[in-house]
Design a protein around this nucleic acid. Sequence first.
DNA 1: TATGAAAGACCGCTCCC
DNA 2: GGGAGCGGTCTTTCATA
Lengths: 158, 158
Amino acid sequence: MHMEKGDAHYRIDNLDKSILRALMDNARTPYAELAKRFQVSPGTIHVRVEKMKQAGIIEGTRVQVNGKKLGYDVCCFIGIILKSARDYPRALAQLEALEEVVEAYYTTGHYNIFIKVMTRSIDELQQVLIHRLQPIEEIQSTETLISLQQPIDRDVTP
Amino acid sequence: MHMEKGDAHYRIDNLDKSILRALMDNARTPYAELAKRFQVSPGTIHVRVEKMKQAGIIEGTRVQVNGKKLGYDVCCFIGIILKSARDYPRALAQLEALEEVVEAYYTTGHYNIFIKVMTRSIDELQQVLIHRLQPIEEIQSTETLISLQQPIDRDVTP
DNA sequence: TATGAAAGACCGCTCCC
DNA sequence: GGGAGCGGTCTTTCATA
């Protein structure tokens, strides 16, 4: 766990929300344009953004990369059932080492761990399933859910 | 530049990959710093980034927002089984209207649609399940998977 | 055709009101 | 919170291999 930056209880107002929404859509939007759009001065935009950075609301800026254009065509979710719930940390450590595993969730219910895997092909997915996941001792069984398409992908609304 | 926007066949080299990795970590990394790091000129960085934008590999820049700091503490996945596979477009349209639905996948297997939902509390999640999803006619049944923690969250490696 | 260097425009940061 | 000046960054242009 890394250190928490700033005050977690900073309450954002409508201006903050507007700024966030704009920057979530395009992080390079000039402050001057935001200022004009929201009828405040560029300095104010700067102050608000800085506050939200300090509060840890804004964690950073990332370029959004189109995975398909890089050849990552196959996306799937895999529900993992462990032999024992106590195996969680060891299983997780091994999943972290697999770069095809882009997300992992510790879940309640039917599965112990739920992961999202992205590969360049169905063949590569099979390789990951057979040669990477199956050999992990702590895993009892897995269930795979292949995604053919992702029609919705957005962030939470501030 | 004669390359069409969205050309899927632009092959990136090692320099492109390095630039991508850096910008995926921090989209505001100065070109001059990247130039120094990779032993090329700032102009070259600019040309490469522009190419990748044109090729559709770089889709844009987004600020990364900490959902928890905004109060979105609850994350869950919901597998949706439709009454008929033909209902997919109508069901999707209604899911799109729910801002709590941040991701949706069209999947093979047990479910027809698989969605990721983020809410501010368990109570709000229940509200979404009961008052938003259940009323959707096209849905036959749903299965909910609550995530207690997300230990891995990263992008595909270029 | 791709790279490297330099000049100009633009943006963000800071100070003061 | 608003406004202006400074410093830094991005972008563009041109020369070069």
